[in-house]
């Protein structure tokens, strides 16, 4: 009995037995995988097509110029409705800006701490906890804003109305902290240790390494994380619907009630706008505006992280 021969013989036998099945499998599996991939692409295309189609109907009734220039969004006025997107846009932007003001410093410092200072053990504990924040349903954030943050803020700002831009803005900011922190931390982690050692070897302190070497090297990834977070803040719905109010106002007053694009879509979707009415079609026009904004943001993030990536 020659043992070393038997293995190759066994393989040979098995190969012949399973060859027929294997060749079918090797041909069909890629096809099935391809179909699955295509389904998601077609879903996206279908959504865009629906949006475009209904938006087209809307602009047949309301001139595009009025949509982008009129300073009033009064779709529920029966005699003289007005469809200017600017108030909804300003509501959205105010919330997004407040959110970024809250999220960037906190998220970035958390990322710097996790990447450059925290011990491996601290990091293993802290990062999952931080990421729990990202798992909280936004509806919970919404009533957290309404029932906790707004009353708290009213103690400091007596003029703050019950619905306002400030409170949901801050809470959206809290919601996107994990995103900023996690993505920025990934970007800083991608900076090779050899570069840190190079700086430490020149007598740099940890602070100098973090702020003068790692941060600039990871800047493209960090900025991309900001842009993605802005995109997320613009698209956020529940928090602003619950705590922001339903008063589309053009301007940058953070203490009074506002309405964002997403909140308007919720309002109409929940209400009794008849199918085929101009109000019904208006949510598609608002929806596509929202889509264009988040799309631009996402493309911008991709562009930044590719174009300004440091080669190391």
């Amino acid at each position: 009995m020659k043992k070393h021969l038997s293995v190759s013989e066994l393989i040979q036998q098995n190969k012949q037995k399973s060859r027929a099945f294997a060749s079918i499998r090797e041909k069909t599996i890629p096809f099935i995988l391809f179909i699955c991939a295509v389904i998601s692409v077609f879903t996206t295309l279908g959504i865009i097509f629906t949006l475009l189609f209904e938006t087209f109907t809307f602009f047949n009734r309301v001139p595009f110029i009025e949509f982008i220039t009129s300073k009033e969004w009064l779709p529920f006025f029966e005699s003289d409705p007005s469809y200017g997107i600017l108030p909804l846009l300003s509501g959205t932007l105010v919330v997004a800006v407040i959110a970024m003001v809250a999220a960037i410093p906190l998220g970035l410092t958390a990322a710097i701490y996790l990447s450059e200072y925290a011990s491996e053990r601290t990091k293993r504990t802290l990062k999952p906890i931080l990421e729990v924040l990202a798992g909280i349903p936004t509806i919970v954030y919404g009533f957290f804003a309404l029932t906790f943050v707004t009353p708290l803020l009213q103690k400091f700002i007596p003029d703050l109305s019950f619905f306002n831009a400030l409170s949901p803005g801050i809470v959206v900011g809290i919601m996107i902290i994990p995103m900023v922190a996690s993505l920025s931390e990934d970007a800083m982690n991608a900076v090779p240790n050899s570069i840190r050692e190079g700086a430490l070897g020149l007598g740099a302190t940890r602070f100098e390494v973090a702020f003068k070497i790692v941060l600039p090297a990871a800047l493209s990834g960090i900025i991309a994380s900001f842009v993605l977070a802005i995109s997320r803040a613009i698209g956020e719905t529940m928090i602003v619907t619950i705590a922001g109010g339903a008063t589309p106002t053009l301007g940058f007053d953070v203490t009074s009630s506002i309405q964002t694009m997403t909140a308007y879509i919720v309002q109409v979707s929940l209400g009794d706008a008849a199918y085929g009415s101009t109000i019904y079609y208006s949510i598609y026009a608002v929806g596509i505006t929202l889509f264009v904004f988040t799309l631009i943001m996402n493309l911008l993030a991709q562009y930044i992280s590719k174009k300004f990536r440091e080669a190391y």
Binding site: P192, E197, G198, A199, G201, L202, G203, I213
Partner: peptide, 26 residues
């Protein structure tokens, strides 16, 4: 100590900066 005792590493590890900035960093 490290300003007096400098180090050159196994793999070249320049900073992702310009040549000038690399030398001027220290």
């Amino acid at each position: 100590l490290r300003t007096r005792v400098g180090m050159v590493f196994q793999k070249p590890n320049p900073f992702p900066k310009s040549i000038y900035e690399n030398v001027a960093y220290g």
